[in-house]
């Protein structure tokens, strides 16, 4: 018998062991749901999978009587567009600010303190300001996500840029490179995979700001729907929506990591 610390499960067992907690949670839920529904068939707190399926079928495949839209898909599309727009804007800003302040000591001296202070402002606290200034439309939601995520990305990229060995900068200069050439050819390509990593890390915060903004002011979106049906205690909609958001988050993260290793094979060095 090996010591526990030396026991590594085989890869097949690893998958099984990984799935086990999910199965246990599902079974516990099903038992709980069954028990409650047996006592009170109109109980809303723990709907059965059948009830959830019916509710989701209605939202996903039957046009809404009010707007004629397929509500579930419309919610997904609106939310993803907001998320991508917000995070995308944040990534562009974060990349530019991060590389420039990380590479040029003059810009670092003038902007790093400001960036630090901005990153300490709680984004949700300025949401009312955004609503007042920009209005209740799409722009304020996208702005909230962008403002919430950009400082993190900018500071991360700044640090990554500074981590690139100064030997490379000196070497490039001895090969005749100018400042813009060093920025564009040496620094920028090397922080691109770090940017994707930073985006992956900031997507969690991105979802948070998205759902918060949708909950407060919106007419569609995944977050809006969850907070809307809460009034009717529609757990049969809320639970599948939460699962769907989780799945989307997982897929986006997986996709970004796949893109990263496809586009930047040389970045594998740091991981091994």
């Amino acid at each position: 018998m090996k010591k526990l610390i030396n026991y590594t499960p085989s890869s097949a067992n690893q998958v099984l062991l990984g799935l086990l907690p999910f199965a246990v949670l599902l079974v516990i839920y099903m038992i709980g749901s069954e028990a409650r529904l047996a006592i009170n068939p109109s109980d809303k707190l723990l709907p059965s999978f059948g009830q959830m399926g019916e509710a989701m079928y209605r939202l996903a495949f039957e046009p809404s009587r009010r707007t004629g839209e397929l509500v579930f898909w419309q919610d997904t599309l609106s939310s993803l567009l907001r998320l991508f727009a917000g995070v995308g804007i944040a990534a562009i800003f974060g990349l530019c600010i991060g590389v420039l302040t990380g590479a040029l000591p003059v810009l670092f001296a003038s902007f790093a303190p400001l960036l630090t202070v901005i990153s300490l402002i709680p984004p949700l606290a300025i949401l009312p300001i955004l609503f007042i200034v920009i209005g209740l439309g799409e722009a304020s939601k996208i702005t909230l996500i962008a403002i919430g995520v950009a400082p993190f990305i900018a500071r991360d990229i700044q640090r990554r840029t500074q981590e690139i060995p100064s030997e490379q900068l000196v070497k490039a200069q001895t090969l005749g490179a100018s400042t813009p050439q060093i920025l564009i050819r040496v620094l920028l390509p090397q922080v691109m995979p770090k940017l994707i990593d930073a985006i992956r890390l900031s997507l969690g915060a991105g979802w948070l700001f998205l759902i918060a903004a949708e909950a407060i002011s919106s007419t569609d979106g995944l977050g809006y729907r969850i907070f809307l049906v809460r009034r009717y205690m529609s757990m049969d909609v809320i639970l599948p929506y939460v699962a769907w958001i989780t799945l989307l988050a997982f897929l986006i993260d997986y996709l970004l990591s796949a893109i990263n290793s496809r586009l930047y094979p040389w970045n594998a060095e740091g991981k091994s």
């Binding site: 060995p165 030997e167 490379q168 000196v170 070497k171 490039a172 200069q173 001895t174 090969l175 005749g176 040496v186 390509p189 090397q190 930047y264 040389w266 970045n267 060095e269």
Partner: peptide
């Protein structure tokens, strides 16, 4: 007072660009 093309350098490490 800064590196230039008439003086080449080879360091012990980090002398090449890892992304090329």
């Amino acid at each position: 007072n800064e590196p230039g093309p008439e003086r080449g350098i080879v360091f012990q490490q980090y002398s090449v660009f890892p992304h090329m």
